[in-house]
Design a protein around this nucleic acid. Structure first.
Lengths: 341, 341
DNA sequence: TTGTATGCGTTATCAG
DNA sequence: CTGATAACGCATACAA
């Protein structure tokens, strides 16, 4: 059994109410009593029991975060973006990862009821409309990278469509007339949006550009396999756009194994712009996504939802084209980060 | 205001107690009543209030995880290792990242009192002995990658020393007589242990091998800078061991920029064996650390500590030497993962 | 099989 | 300025 506020009260010779007031700075307390309470508290090494406090204050100071299985550094970076922002505002993060499908999400969300002041939910497999049915009505929610068409949730999404559109346009502008795309995991929302951007760009060109597609799964191995598939075609593409960087790395490896040079024979581009990309050889062209900021922004939106000081907003996180050597751009290979003199 | 157990009781026309019993399966309930309760519960979309329940059951079903600022994929992978294991056992993870120094840890730990059933604490900057003073006596704790000499905590540590020793020995066995090391972040426990392994291996060789060291910080940029420093020496090393893979990538990039070939002129090895390593060119030799398993094991130790079915254990997570092309080994570059036929 | 009463640790309310 | 008391939502010993 651990030290409670009553132990402190007894030791200080006052009531629990007074201890609460003295420690929380709420209400008036005489200097003498305050000192006695503080002494007793620290001698006993008393720490308030968060759960009990939450029950009455109706605040938990915790945000629930429900994430699916995530690929690569995304998981890491999104949490890294959230945690400092949350901490600034006095919140901790209650994590629940590895969820797919409505049933699991529903369960995770349920388990969080009464333990969190708000939730950030990412479920690229489940649409916002379906989520609406299983989310508690009394807790503010921000959706992350979900299909939110027709829902009233606050949400922040990566501009997957815009990024893919821009990169594909760039490849075509470089003169490529046969452009391939290696898709992300099947059914994944990000993957779908990136594909949509690719197709839109190809469609813009009318019949002038021939687009081809190969299935992928966001892994290096998947990119390796898919690149081989594309390369075996009768008229293989001269540029390959991969739905993420991991697959781009696999793709480059596969092309090299088949004796094709990057970017001389085939241009390759990725999506995400992972930190290591600029150090690869050739350095990797990619669509930069500031995942960190994505997480941070989600926390901010949630804070607004809780404070009620702003209407629900559905935002798009802009992406940025990063052209390096792997697609023949005027890149910076080898790299010289700014702090190298 | 949200739905409580009383609302369900009213709607089902029974007492609160009966609802509790029916829903939790504790105690006898007539089939008829059970059905009525379940109906009312789902119609009202009732979800028990975790906080309130915790107060009386004295279980929160939450593990606290206190992590420092972490480099690269470590953060991601360690959580990825913990989460599924924790979930298997019905626990969620309450995260508190970005902590350094005793004060901050102490604060984070305090904020978790009463909200968690156990804690996993990683504080490479603070020794277990010092931690002992600020950790609550009534909550089970597992230490992760800490200096635990002389403490009674359960702990799991990466075998940094053994891994660095083995890799340095390997480099010497390849015939290198001038071996350099690029260190990790200053004061970091992992970094210190890896350095200790390096020095031990060099010492074993007597005067036959000349070891040199350069400060680093676990980042690509730091590795780039440090490699330049080592290369500028009068007798530059013919092999460079980097305290992690990120720095190895930076180092290779720097050496290439100076016109030195890897591994022909200089061998390079890293530590961690990040997934992308085998796809680099040249593929990266490294000391494999199964961070995922590290997290999983920490959760298991914590479960044992809670159940009291095993004495506190201080374990070492074994590492594995992965020799690829970057240090001239008979590596597998380009890579052909097994599933490529 | 069901209900009543009590308590978990804390803060809020209202008297003193 | 201080203290007794209720309440938060739930589970449990005990009574019926």
């Amino acid at each position: 059994m651990s030290i409670t506020i009553r132990d402190v009260a007894e030791r200080a010779g006052v009531s629990v109410t007074t201890v609460s007031r003295a420690l929380n700075g709420t209400g008036p307390v005489s200097p003498d009593v305050r000192r006695r309470v503080e002494a007793a508290s620290s001698e006993l090494r008393y720490v308030p029991h968060g759960t009990a406090r939450s029950l009455i204050t109706r605040r938990t100071d915790v945000f629930g975060v429900v994430l699916p299985d995530l690929f690569g550094e995304f998981f890491s970076e999104v949490i890294r973006g959230m945690d400092p922002r949350a901490q600034e505002r006095g919140y901790h993060l209650l994590l629940s990862g590895s969820h797919d499908g409505r049933r699991e999400i529903e369960f995770a969300v349920g388990a969080m009821r009464g333990r969190v002041d708000g939730m950030i939910v990412m479920s690229p497999g489940v649409s916002g409309a379906r989520l609406e049915g299983c989310l508690p009505p009394d807790v503010p929610v921000v959706l992350l990278n979900c299909d939110v068409s027709g829902t009233a949730f606050s949400a922040i999404n990566v501009d997957n469509y815009g990024g893919a559109l821009a990169m594909t346009r760039h490849l075509m502008a470089m003169g490529h007339r046969r452009v391939g795309m290696i898709n992300g995991a099947e059914g994944n929302f990000d993957a779908l949006e990136r594909l949509r951007g690719f197709r839109a760009a190809v469609a813009e060109a009318g019949g002038a550009v021939q687009g081809s597609e190969a299935p992928g799964d966001f892994t290096e191995a998947g990119g390796y396999r898919a690149a081989g598939e594309l390369a075996r075609a009768a008229d293989p593409p001269t540029a390959i756009f991969c739905a993420n960087d991991s697959m781009a790395v696999g793709a480059i490896s596969a092309l090299r194994a088949r004796g094709r040079r990057v970017p001389d024979d085939v241009a390759v581009a990725g999506f995400d712009d992972v930190p290591i990309g600029r150090y690869l050889s050739p350095s990797l062209s990619s669509v930069r996504v500031d995942v960190n900021r994505l997480g941070a922004r989600a926390v901010e939106l949630l804070c607004h939802a809780i404070a009620g000081d702003a209407p629900p907003a559905q935002e798009l996180l802009p992406t940025e084209l990063v052209v390096r050597r792997s697609c023949g751009g005027g890149g910076d290979d080898p790299p010289f980060p700014q702090d190298f003199r």
